[in-house]
Amino acid sequence: MIRIENVSLRYRTTPILHDIDLTIPKGGVTALIGPNGAGKSSLLSLIARLQPLQTGSITIDGLGVDSTPSPELAKVVALLRQDSVIASRLRVRELVGFGRFPHGRGRLTQEDCNIVNQSLRQLDLTDFADRFMETLSGGQRQRALVAMTLAQGTDYILLDEPLNNLDMYYARTLMQALRAIADENGKTVVIVLHDINQASAYADRIVAMKGGRVVGDGTPAAIFTPDVLEGIFGFRMRVETFDGKPLVLHHL
């Protein structure tokens, strides 16, 4: 369980997050949605202790993110950043292998190698495993980064817009894979999505943010109504029901 209490954040004098209180239960897929600049990435980076907490507290399975040693947390929570740039000349397999660093401090056991191979397979990267990162296409690179995050093998996986650069096929594949590891391995996935239909199809729960506040929290059916969506995004969209799930016609 991720418990966020009274968390506020400001850069110099600009407030970014206002008194966030949020609990994300263990297991399942939670989608974080909201307009650009709502504070989604900021919240995730606080959960992943990439910046220090200014007020309030965040705990993951009872471990305070500001008090638990960083190497310990690295075995509990993994974050894929929205804008990761890899400048090093690394092969895909090497990069994904570094996801195992928290477990063996660099020594890859047979088990580690199996996990790396499994992540590579999950993201359909086996053919590219020995290529250098810079020789991949944008979407392939994004898949390698996701594979690295999954290889970390943590119970909590935070993904900031992982569908960036992915084509429809791989976007669907990734969402199905995330659904599967949540259902079969009991992992907790928190994912920032701009495609709300993906959120509707694969998430158990939707958390909506706007202007640094949580403005909606519930099942897809509860959040994806014309009224709530208009409150979040500022325009009215048609919502149909398809296969029992809301389908938002936001592009019309």
Binding site: R49, L50, S70, A74, K75, V85, F98, F101, Q152
Partner: peptide, 10 residues
Amino acid sequence: LGRDASIGLG
């Protein structure tokens, strides 16, 4: 790989 990646990996 950068500050964020290294903190993320503990």
